[in-house]
Simulated scan of single mutants.
Amino acid sequence: MKRWIVSLALVCAASAWAAPEWVRAEITKLAPEKAQLTLRHEAIKSLGMDAMTMPYKVKDASLLKGFKVGDSVRFTVGMQGDQMQVQALEHVK
């Protein structure tokens, strides 16, 4: 049992140190006043999420400057408390 707990702890620690997963998406809605955007994104494998369209909070509303609905982007997501939050966002050419 102790071995199993130690193994699980090591896996969790390794995933915490892993580089963030960049995910491709399209912006379908922007709400800078709420520090929020809606993304139609591909699967987020690291979180076991299928491709879908959903709203996300952003870590800082300034991340949304220079973006518009219809833009192709890539983003990283992390947990802020019990909510997923966009940590980084950039245009895809």
Rank of each mutant, 00 (worst) to 15 (best):
M1K: 09
M1C: 13
M1G: 15
M1P: 09
K2S: 14
R3F: 07
R3Q: 14
S7M: 12
L8N: 10
L8D: 01
L8R: 12
A9W: 09
L10P: 06
V11I: 15
V11L: 15
V11T: 12
V11F: 12
C12H: 04
C12T: 13
A13T: 12
A13P: 05
A14E: 06
A14S: 14
A14Y: 12
S15A: 12
A16K: 05
A19W: 07
A19E: 14
A19N: 10
A19M: 09
A19T: 06
P20D: 12
E21H: 05
E21A: 09
E21D: 08
W22P: 02
V23N: 03
V23A: 00
V23F: 02
R24G: 05
A25N: 10
A25R: 10
E26M: 10
E26T: 15
I27W: 01
I27E: 07
T28I: 03
T28C: 04
K29E: 14
L30C: 06
L30D: 02
L30H: 01
A31P: 00
A31L: 04
P32K: 01
P32F: 04
K34T: 06
A35C: 10
Q36Y: 04
Q36W: 07
L37P: 02
L37Y: 02
T38C: 05
T38M: 07
T38W: 06
L39T: 03
L39E: 00
L39W: 01
R40N: 13
H41F: 07
E42G: 11
E42T: 04
A43K: 15
A43P: 07
A43D: 13
K45N: 10
S46T: 14
L47G: 08
G48F: 01
D50M: 13
D50V: 13
D50C: 04
D50K: 11
A51D: 04
M52G: 03
T53C: 05
M54V: 06
M54K: 11
M54N: 10
P55A: 02
Y56P: 08
Y56A: 04
K57L: 11
K57Q: 11
K57F: 14
K57N: 15
V58P: 01
K59D: 13
D60S: 15
D60G: 03
A61I: 05
S62N: 10
S62F: 05
L63R: 06
L63W: 03
L64R: 04
L64N: 02
L64I: 08
K65Y: 09
K65S: 13
K65F: 01
G66Q: 11
G66E: 09
G66L: 05
F67Q: 10
K68L: 06
K68S: 12
G70A: 10
D71A: 12
S72T: 07
S72D: 14
S72K: 15
S72Y: 07
S72W: 02
V73P: 03
V73K: 00
R74H: 12
R74M: 09
R74E: 14
R74P: 00
F75K: 08
F75V: 04
T76Y: 08
V77P: 01
M79I: 09
Q80S: 15
G81M: 10
Q83I: 13
Q83E: 15
Q83M: 14
Q83D: 14
M84I: 07
M84S: 07
M84P: 04
M84N: 07
Q85Y: 03
Q85F: 01
V86Y: 01
V86Q: 02
Q87C: 09
A88E: 12
A88W: 03
L89Q: 13
L89Y: 12
E90V: 06
E90L: 02
H91Y: 02
V92P: 02
V92C: 05
